[in-house]
Structure formats: C-alpha cells, structure tokens
Deep mutational scan, measured.
Amino acid sequence: VKVYLPNKQRTVVTVRDGMSVYDSLDKALKVRGLNQDCCVVYRLIKGRKTVTAWDTAIAPLDGEELIVE
C-alpha cells in the first residue's frame, strides 16, 4: 500500500493479514515524529479522499493508496 504522509513524504507498507491500518503505519509515523492521535487517514479512490478508520483491516486495501494528514 502506497501512503502519502505529511510534509510531502511517502512510504510503502507491506500488507499482512490480521493487521490494521494503525498497526501497519505505526513505525512509519513514529520515525517521522507523528502518531495516529494527531492524524487522519484517507483512502484515495479515483482521485477523491474518503476518511478511513485507523482500525480498518489493511489486507483488503492491498494495491490502494492512502493519505495521512
């Protein structure tokens, strides 16, 4: 899953069964001094942002793009 992060940064996270968006992005956010409490995650669908819950399973999102703001 390709993830666009604040400050024009981006990362790619590996999809693993049983993991949530929260778990999958935890390290990427912490390395950048961010956490899930201060950010909102969106799914990018056909160029439009849709709010996605942090506890959403990451497996069904394989191949999609997320935006964290």
Score class of each variant (00 low, 15 high):
R43V: 03
K49R: 10
D17W: 07
L5Q: 01
G47L: 01
Q9W: 05
D23F: 12
L29S: 04
G18Q: 07
V21A: 08
N7W: 05
E64Q: 14
T14E: 10
T52I: 15
K2N: 10
I58G: 03
W54A: 05
L5V: 01
Q36L: 07
K2C: 15
P60F: 13
V31Q: 13
G63A: 10
S20V: 01
K49Q: 04
V21R: 01
T11L: 14
V15G: 09
L5D: 00
V12L: 09
G63T: 10
D37R: 09
R48G: 05
V1E: 02
K49S: 02
K46V: 02
V21F: 06
K8Q: 13
A53Y: 06
T11C: 12
Y42P: 01
G18R: 06
N35E: 14
C39H: 09
Q9P: 01
V41Y: 01
D17S: 12
S20N: 10
D17H: 07
R16I: 12
L44P: 02
I58R: 01
W54E: 00
L5W: 15
A53L: 05
K8N: 15
G63S: 11
V31E: 15
V3C: 08
G47M: 00
L5C: 02
K8W: 06
Y22N: 06
D23W: 07
D23I: 05
C38A: 13
K8D: 10
V41K: 03
N35K: 12
L34R: 00
V12G: 00
T11A: 10
V15T: 10
G33A: 04
N7Y: 09
L44G: 03
D17Q: 13
A53R: 10
L29I: 01
E69V: 05
K49V: 01
L61G: 09
N7L: 03
V31F: 09
V41A: 07
L5P: 02
L44H: 10
R10M: 15
N7A: 05
G47P: 00
I45C: 05
V41F: 02
A59R: 13
I58A: 09
G63F: 07
P6S: 08
C39L: 11
N35G: 10
R48P: 05
G18K: 12
E65Y: 07
K46R: 13
G47K: 03
Y42G: 02
L44N: 11
N35D: 10
L34I: 05
V40A: 13
E65G: 07
N7R: 05
L5T: 01
T56I: 05
R43I: 00
K8L: 06
K30I: 04
I45M: 05
C38Y: 11
T56L: 08
C39A: 05
Q36T: 10
D37E: 10
A28M: 13
D62I: 13
W54V: 01
T11Y: 06
P60N: 10
T56S: 13
V51P: 14
R10I: 15
Y4S: 13
V21W: 04
R48I: 15
K2P: 05
K2D: 06
T56H: 10
D55V: 03
T14S: 10
E64V: 08
M19H: 05
D55T: 07
D23G: 06
D37T: 06
V13P: 03
G33N: 05
R32V: 14
M19W: 12
A53P: 14
E65R: 06
Y4E: 10
W54G: 00
V1W: 01
D62F: 04
D23P: 01
Y42D: 01
L44S: 10
S24H: 00
G63L: 05
C39M: 05
Y42H: 04
G18F: 04
A28P: 10
Q36E: 05
L61V: 11
R10P: 07
V68D: 13
